[in-house]
Design a protein around this nucleic acid. Structure first.
Lengths: 161, 161
DNA sequence: CCTTGACCTCAAGTCGACTTGAACTGGCAC
DNA sequence: GTGCCAGTTCAAGTCGACTTGAGGTCAAGG
């Protein structure tokens, strides 16, 4: 199969055919032509899909990923971009780690109510101050999209006052 | 101001008035009544909003958060739920950490093209195998919703073959 | 008295990444 | 030769968390 059809690509990559069509429409991948009206792909599309999957996993949007391919189709990934994304991930990891530790403590805390646990309250302040937003991506739970606007909250000392 | 109006709550909490109305409609918060047709809140709504912010930061959906309040309005958070979410965050953190390390290595890798860097290629395999999805929440970049379906990709050894 | 401005309601729009549905085509088996 | 299946196109729907817009109300101020 040196010229897989959409079903073959879907099978090998694990990416649904509908998504492959969508990606093609977006310019993220390309079919080499049609055979009896059906898309024919180059085997290289598999590597490209892997690259796209990696980009998504790293937190890049499809539009950002599209910019990482030269017009000729070869990946051309700016090292600075990678560093910047790594830094972003660092931030995210920091927040999530703090949140995880707080959750775990609260889960084991002997205080009768969470509101009486100092750690929980500290966590509460961190969250309300807008230092975080909403993590997740679909790794375990089914999701929780995100902030679309970029609000972030000024929060001049809400509760407890 | 022991009975703040919506503007006051918005100011103190950093949550836009539109969001407060939305949260009220969703049953996440409640106003104590109306004064000249306008919402009047109890000061306790601020703590409640903090709780909601924390829940969001921990990756809970608004619907999940809604379940964490007893009908009488008091928070009643199951410790098991917290533990489960902490475990989820652990997973997420693990993935993001691997991705971050890979990105950073790739950024500093002396290989002329990323495709020639073994670490980058390893990263690629990890991503394509569907071990990840799409992280982020709005912490630095402006977003990247997530996988809603729960696809995850079988991926029987895509590229490189 | 009339404007202003903050608030109200309700419906619809937004964002990103896809999925789904309807209507159609083309090749193969029977 | 016809029935099916797998593919095609294009438009529209989905999901979550909000935002935005239109049109209306109301108390205060000039």
């Amino acid at each position: 199969m040196d010229h897989p059809d959409i079903a073959e690509v879907a099978r090998r990559s694990g990416v649904p055919a509908s998504t492959l069509r969508f990606y093609e429409e977006k310019g993220l991948i390309a079919s080499t032509g049609r055979r009896a009206g059906r898309r024919v792909f180059d085997p290289g599309v598999l590597q490209r899909l892997a690259l796209i999957a990696m980009g998504r996993a790293a937190g890049f949007s499809l539009d950002e990923i599209a910019l990482m391919f030269a017009p000729d189709g070869r990946p051309r990934i700016d090292r600075e971009t990678l560093r910047a994304k790594a830094d972003e991930l660092d931030e995210t990891i920091r927040h999530l780690t703090a949140m995880r530790d707080g959750l775990r403590h609260a889960a084991d805390c002997p205080a009768p109510s969470h509101m009486e646990c100092p750690t929980f309250r500290r966590l509460l302040r961190a969250a309300e101050s807008g230092a975080m937003s909403a993590p997740e991506g679909g790794l375990s739970g089914r999701s929780a999209p995100a902030a679309a606007g970029g609000r972030r909250a000024p929060a001049p000392r809400p509760a407890d006052g």
